[in-house]
Design a protein around this nucleic acid. Structure first.
Lengths: 328, 328
DNA sequence: CTGTTAGCGCCTTCAA
DNA sequence: TTGAAGGCGCTAACAG
């Protein structure tokens, strides 16, 4: 691979002049510039981005750090992030933590060693120690899904309000008893960051105070299907299952079909996230939707803003809406 | 950020010695090594990966270049690739081409400028010019999905045989007429690489020669639902729809439900890919399955092998299987 | 065992 | 307008 030194030799000029020609810097005659560009073209010159990064201290690289992308919602976000980042000239590292706090810390560390310009993070870690860890890294960070603290910009919906709206919607459909499914709460280690699910649960509890005539059960079990199976008295009241994520709702839908339980006459069902998978199921699933793509775009916009030294908002709230469906 | 020069100064030794301590290189006394490591620890020294890459000419980075990851199958592959790559110490760039040939070429070029060690590619481009382009880049490449040529290692199932098996399976269920759905064939520009869909169609045509008593129609239209709607005579023979991808099958399933067409009594339906989405639909979709995770792992293994200078097989064939379902 | 020197390929400053 | 020199932070080769 030919470098600027070689081009300088070929053109009989100095490397500084070659640099001026190649990077449109002032202080060079049109002729020599033309000549240099011509030679560069001929020999197929390509700048070494690594060398450039070493001196400019800019890698034009950001990283997305997330559990995994098997869950639709994360792959959709990653897709949006990559697309927007490329528009702004950034390449993106994909980094999966598999919900392991130590791995997450290690990977973030490595990314900083690699001099990424910024990080988009859905964290498994939380707490003061972690905040200090991130702070010391001195790398621009924006977060989504699981908030870390007010210090790190958070771009997401209002989970609490969204669940309240969902409950309100179910109430308007005359349900008398709600069973809230949120397995994440027990599934993960207590030291893990589960801000999202926590906010949603908080919303649920608040909502129940607003609807005092409604009964409620909260299931935090990963074997929620078994648990449901044991609550066999679906008889007396009009009951609905509200799930903290569509994937659980889909599971329950499947269960109900197998059991021959008719939805929505025998039980109501509502999800959350509006992942694209649900468009293929029948009856169509009621859920809470929001623009995942918008989140991805805003994450990148904010991060790049921060990278460029601007102040950015600590919180951007994405709007949500109730998606009606045949399951309620 | 402190560097080796600073540590050398603090320890009163030369940078060479510091390097020996930090990188476990021989030729250093245990004491000085201990001392240097201690100081490095204290000042929170972190190696600059960019600088290191510049001299070693290794970035420990690979890239995955693919259309997008909205399609489940690609996000599953990307997930597997990232996971395996991290195990081997590589970070991965996610690069989406949105099926635009020029973008793909440009991005690959940039990745090479960034000195990625290798590329995992599902190509939109094809042809001799493109092959030459890749060859000149002199970067290790492995491919999946759309083969480019025998020159570039290809890790994938045998699409042709898989469709033949699918037809065989449908024949065993006594279907008399098959309608093959493969919109990709017309959806994309003729100069695009659609090796996968082409192989599958080839398999379908071959299979039809083996089953001369069966009728067949091939629909290459993106508006296949409309087309199907016009073929209203589902009356006489026992007919099945075979789709080149599960996403089309899911679409048809939805259509049939809306139309009140009963599956499988009034028509059979079979997909391809076995994406995880289908586990939630009823009736359960018959399809062709294979280990997507295995493909991801093998892609990384092969690429890294090649990066390390070893010869790797030009073709690794992943096995497939018929997944039975209630739709046939 | 340790220090010195010379790069990797680029950018930046200062002189000429 | 151009050239020369120095440095980004690290590795590598050769002396001592």
């Amino acid at each position: 691979m030919v470098n600027t030194k070689e081009i300088a030799r070929l053109c009989g000029v100095s490397r500084g002049t070659v640099d001026r020609a190649l990077n449109n810097r002032p202080g060079i005659s049109p002729e020599t510039k033309r000549k240099i560009l011509k030679v560069a073209e001929e020999v197929g010159y390509r700048p070494n981005f690594i060398a450039k990064s070493l001196v400019t201290k800019k890698t034009m690289t950001i990283a997305i750090v997330v559990f995994d992308i098997n869950n639709r919602i994360f792959s959709q976000i990653a897709n949006a992030i990559e697309t927007r980042a490329r528009e702004l000239g950034y390449f993106v590292y994909l980094t999966l933590t598999h919900k392991k706090p130590e791995l997450e810390k290690e990977y973030i560390r490595y990314l900083v060693d690699r001099k990424v310009d910024g990080i988009i993070l859905m964290s498994v870690n939380k707490g003061q120690e972690f905040e200090k860890y991130l702070r010391n890294l001195k790398v621009p960070i924006v977060t989504f899904g699981n908030k870390i603290s007010d210090e790190f910009p958070f771009i997401w919906i209002n989970d609490e309000k969204a669940i309240i709206d969902a409950v309100q919607y179910l109430a308007s459909k005359n349900y008398e008893k709600l069973i809230y499914i949120t397995p994440a709460l027990r599934e993960s280690n207590p030291s893990n960051n589960i801000y999202g699910p926590e906010q949603r649960l908080k919303g649920f509890n608040k909502a129940m105070k607003l609807h005092k005539n409604m009964e409620s059960i909260v299931i935090t079990d990963m074997n929620y299907i078994d648990t449901i199976d044991n609550i066999s008295n679906l008889g007396n009241e009009k009951v609905a299952f509200l799930c903290s994520s569509d994937i659980y709702a889909l599971d329950i839908l499947k269960y109900a079909k197998n059991k021959g339980i008719h939805i929505p006459t025998e039980m109501g069902l509502m999800g959350f996230d509006n992942i694209d998978t649900i468009q293929y199921v029948t009856p169509s699933l009621a859920t809470v939707g929001f623009s995942i793509e918008d989140i991805g775009i805003q994450l990148v916009n904010s991060l790049v803003d921060k990278i460029e030294g601007n102040e950015i908002p600590k919180r951007i709230q994405i709007s949500h809406e109730i998606i009606e469906g045949e399951t309620v």
